[in-house]
Design a protein around this nucleic acid. Structure first.
Lengths: 195, 195
DNA sequence: CGAGGCCTTGACCGCGGTCAATGCCCGTGG
DNA sequence: CCACGGGCATTGACCGCGGTCAAGGCCTCG
């Protein structure tokens, strides 16, 4: 097995854990997969584009971001073994003000959305899989809403540290700050208080 | 047609707008529907229960709420013509700390989740419908996260006024305050500033 | 070695929090 | 029918979290 095949295997196995699928479905999906390796700061998708690709961060990290009043805001981080999808564009077909950028050197699996959705006709387990992914993202977002609504800056930072120390270690502070909804200056102070 | 049948018709028509379904599917769904009328402050679902019912507010309003440090927090409002679902419990089967309460006299359609999910086997358009509902809720939550993360209290209140003046007119201030993530006292001040 | 990006730190201030007093509305019982 | 009590909203006093602005330190890269 070459390196790509190993990655593919891992990916398919990961999906099987979320929602079981038949060998044929896995095979069909496999035929759509593209694997790329990206260096830091690569733009995967420009802002103001349409989302037509699902990405899976095999390892590394990426973020969804946008500009609000010219400030760069991080909306979402995807770490190793997670999907990164601009749902609001994928569902509606509209273009979105959000972009996707690599923040750590990464190996990324891409799946083109149209062919993938086509597969749903023959492979309802793939449709189930997709819906399971969406449900998970939804729950994650609900949880995050709750976090941000009723926890102060310090608590949110500690929460992030707790759940994803990986982000905090390697990713520039400024990206983390806007993700937590606080200024980079405040985050710096919080961090120094903790030592 | 009696009153219940009129309500059913409206409901099915509303769903057809979201995701088309066959006459048979509509009929199957219709057989699961229960319609009730509730007065203000009725508890539809207790906190610490499992979610096994989808509710649709035909007219009126309800909220999802929970207790954080003994404070009553409103997580979500459903107004006329919208669903109210405790997704985190429905998806996982776990019980949830959240409850559902009527906040305006309401006519509510209930659908028991297990029989509904059973229908998916025969009626894939119902499964599609359900997934479309979830996607919509997800997008709404994403949007709300953005709102709350980067708008101050006044902007959030104005946003709500704009999108749902109905909430603001009729529902006690304290419920609205926690929904917006601010104190009832501050919301009162904001409101008086606007006049 | 100089420049630019990123993080830290100090000074300052405003938004929105809590606590408490008061006002207003409404349902209930004398 | 009025008096009282309870729930909700308003208002004032006060304060702390987290924001901005600006200066300074530290790395990295050309």
């Amino acid at each position: 097995m070459n390196e790509f095949e190993v990655i593919e295997e891992h990916f398919i196995a990961h999906l099987q854990n979320i929602q079981e699928m038949s060998a044929e479905s896995a095979e069909a999906l496999r035929s759509l997969i593209k694997i790329h390796s990206y260096s830091n700061k690569t733009t995967l998708q420009e802002v103001e584009s349409r989302c037509q690709t699902l990405y899976f961060i095999y390892n590394g990290a990426a973020r969804i971001f946008y500009y609000k009043d010219d400030k760069d805001i991080t909306e979402y981080f995807a770490l190793s073994n997670s999907f990164i999808i601009r749902a609001e564009s994928l569902f509606t077909g509209n273009s979105t003000s959000k972009g996707i950028e690599i923040v750590l050197p990464s190996i990324v699996i891409s799946i083109s959305s149209h062919p993938f959705f086509q597969l749903f006709e023959q492979h309802s387990d793939l449709e189930r899989l997709f819906n399971a992914l969406i449900r998970n993202s939804y729950l994650e977002t609900l949880h995050r809403l709750e976090q941000i609504q009723f926890h102060n800056a310090r608590e949110r930072y500690l929460g992030l540290l707790n759940s994803s120390a990986e982000i905090v270690q390697n990713i520039p502070l400024k990206y983390i700050a806007s993700y937590l909804g606080i200024s980079q200056v405040s985050l710096s102070r919080i961090r120094s208080d903790l030592k």
